[in-house]
Write a protein that binds this DNA or RNA. Structure first.
Lengths: 182, 182, 182, 182
DNA sequence: CATGAATGAGCCTTCATTCAT
DNA sequence: GATGAATGAAGGCTCATTCAT
C-alpha cells in the first residue's frame, strides 16, 4: 500500500526528470523502468499509457493554475490584485516541482500540443493573463502586462546557476512589478 | 543543377514546417519524403543524415546572429547601440523564415540540446545578451535588459493572430525599448 | 463452498461466451476477469492456467459424446439404431450449452488443435461417424452418411435467426434422416 | 522487379500455410519472416499491416466467388443451372489454393469476423446459396440445397487422406447433386 | 478466496539508414 | 538524382503467470 503510492510517485518523479532533460519522445519507457529498477511492464500496472504519465504530471500543474484562477475571479480588478496574483504565481512556481513541470511544458510543446490536459492548461493560462489586462488596453500594454508572468519564468532560465535562487526570484518579481506599472 | 538546389531547398522548407508543427522526433523522414513526393532514399542524396537537415537549418540562423554580433562588436557600448541592436534583431526576425526557425528552436529544445550547431548558436545568443548589460549591473537589471530580446519573440507568441503582424512587431519593439530604459 | 462453485461456473460461462465470440487467443484473462468483476489473479485460484479453462469446457462435451458412444456400442448396427443415434445427438445439442461449445470448437480449431482433450473428442467423434457407415461402403455413401451429423449443426448456422429454433431442429433432423437413407 | 513479385507472393504463401496450420493470432510476423529468411521489417515493405496480408488472401477468394455470382446471375434459374453452379464451384475449389484459403477462413472465423473483406465474402456466399433455393421453399429444402455447397467442402475434411483427391471430389459432387434433387 | 504488484516474453509496428541498380 | 528492397534497433504495449499478503 505504501509501496504502491511510492512506486507511482517515483515513476512520476523519474519521468519528469527524464522528460525534461531529454524530451518526451526521446525518453523511452525502458529508460524510466531501468532508472527505477523495475520492468517496463510494471509501469503499465501504474499507468495505462505513456501518455497517462504525462497527463498525471500536467494535472498537478493544472490544479495549481485553476486554484489561482478561482482566487483571482473573486477579487476586484485592481492593480493591487494583479500584484498579489503575480506574487502567488511566483509562490507556486517556487514550491513543489512546478518550475520543473513548467520547464517540461516549455521544452515539449510540440509533443504536448494535442494533449487534452494541455489544452485546458493553456486555456486557463490565457484566462490568467487576461486578468492582467484591461479590455481596451493598447496592444503594447497587453504585451507588457502579459510579460509580467513571463518574467517569473525568465528569471529561472535566463539568469543561470551562478545567481542564487532567492535572488533570481526577487529579480523576477521586481521586473514583473515593473512591467505591470505602466 | 537548378533542380538539385530546388530539391535541397524544398526538403529544408518542408522539414522546417513539419519539425515546427510536430516536433523533430515526431517527424519521420518518411513524412518529409511523402510530402515532397519522393522516396526516403532520395533524401539521403541531399543530406547525409536526418541530423544534417536540422544542422542546415540551424546554420542559417547562426549566420544571422553572428553577423549581428560582428556588427555589435564594432560599436560603442551606448544605449543607442543597444536600441539599434534590438531594431536589427527584429528586422532579422521579420525577414526570411527566422521567426519560424526560432520557433523550431524553442519547441525542440531538448532534441537539439546536444547538437553542435545549437551549442554555438546558444553561445552567440548569450554574447548578444551580454551586450545588453553593463558588467556590475544588479541582477534585476540584467534580467530586464535580457528580456528586451525576449519581448520581440513574445510579441509573436503571446499576442494572437487577430493582431496584425505589423502591430505585433511595433508592440514588441516598444516594450523592448521600455525594458532597456530604466 | 457454494460461492466457489459459483465463481468457477461463472468463469466457465463467461469464458465460453467470450472465446466463442472473439476467439480463444483474442480473449485475454483480463477481459474474463473484468467481465466477472474480479482480479486476474482470482482466476488462478479456480483454474491452474488459461488452458485449463478450455479443458474444463471441452470435457463437458467429451462426456456427452462418450456417453452417446457407449450407448451406441451396445446397440445392433441397424438403420434404426443410426436414426436413434442422430435423434439423441440432436437432443444433446439442443440441451445445455452444447451447441455453444460446439461452435466454440468450430471457431477455434487451430487454437485447440494440439489440446489433449480435443484429440480425444475428435477421436470419439470419428468413432461415432464410423457408426454411421458400413465397412465397405463406397466413398460417396460414407460422405453422405457422415454428413447426417453435419446436417444437425448446419441447421443452426446456415438457417439464420428468422427461423424459430424448433423448426431449425426439425429441418436438421429431416435432412439428416434423408441423408441416412440411401 | 521479379524479386518484388516473388517476395510478395512468397509472403502470401507462407502466411496462408502458417495461418491455416496454427491460426491467425497464433502466427507471429516473426515466424513468417523467419520462414522466409528475411527480417520482420521486410514484411512491412510489402504489406502495410499483418491485417493487410490476410486481406490480400481473402481478396483472391472474393474475386472467385464474385465471378461465379456474376455468371449465375445471367443464367435462368433452372435445376441445370444449379448443377452447373455446383460444378464450377468445385472447379474453383480444386484449382489454385482456394481450398486452402477456405480452410483458413473456416479455422479463423473469429479472428476474421470483423474484417471488411470477409463481410463482403460472406454476403456473396449468401447470395450464392440463395441461388440454390426457390423463394417459398420449405425450411428443410432450403437447408438441403444449401448443404449441397457444404458437401463439396465436407468432401475434403471428412474423408481423410487415404482417399485420393480425385475420388473425394467425385464423391463431393455426387452427394451435392443428390441433395439438390428433391 | 482474492488482491496488489510485478515479471519475462513476446507482439506489431516504425524508424533511420544502406546499397545495388 | 533517385528508387526498390531490405536491415537492425528500438518503441509502446499486452499477456499469461506468480507470489506474498
Amino acid at each position: 500500500m505504501r509501496d504502491q503510492a511510492d512506486t507511482r510517485t517515483r515513476i512520476q518523479e523519474i519521468a519528469l526528470t527524464l522528460f525534461t532533460e531529454q524530451g518526451y519522445e526521446a525518453t523511452s519507457l525502458r529508460e524510466i523502468a531501468e532508472a527505477l529498477g523495475v520492468t517496463k511492464a510494471a509501469l503499465y500496472y501504474h499507468f495505462r499509457t505513456k501518455d497517462d504519465i504525462v497527463a498525471s504530471l500536467a494535472e498537478k500543474r493544472l490544479h495549481a493554475v485553476e486554484e489561482l484562477l478561482a482566487w483571482a475571479e473573486k477579487q476586484p480588478r485592481t492593480e493591487e490584485t494583479r500584484r498579489e496574483l503575480i506574487r502567488r504565481y511566483a509562490d507556486d512556481l517556487y514550491s513543489g516541482r512546478h518550475r520543473e513541470i513548467m520547464r517540461f511544458f516549455e521544452r515539449n510543446q510540440t509533443a504536448l500540443k494535442h494533449h487534452p490536459v494541455m489544452g485546458k492548461t493553456r486555456e486557463r493560462m490565457f484566462e490568467l493573463i487576461t486578468f492582467m489586462v484591461e479590455p481596451g488596453d493598447p496592444v503594447a500594454t497587453r504585451l507588457r502586462n502579459s510579460m509580467a508572468v513571463l518574467a517569473l519564468h525568465a528569471a529561472s532560465f535566463i539568469l543561470d546557476e551562478e545567481v542564487p535562487e532567492e535572488e533570481r526570484r526577487a529579480a523576477g518579481l521586481e521586473v514583473a512589478f515593473d512591467l505591470l506599472r505602466r
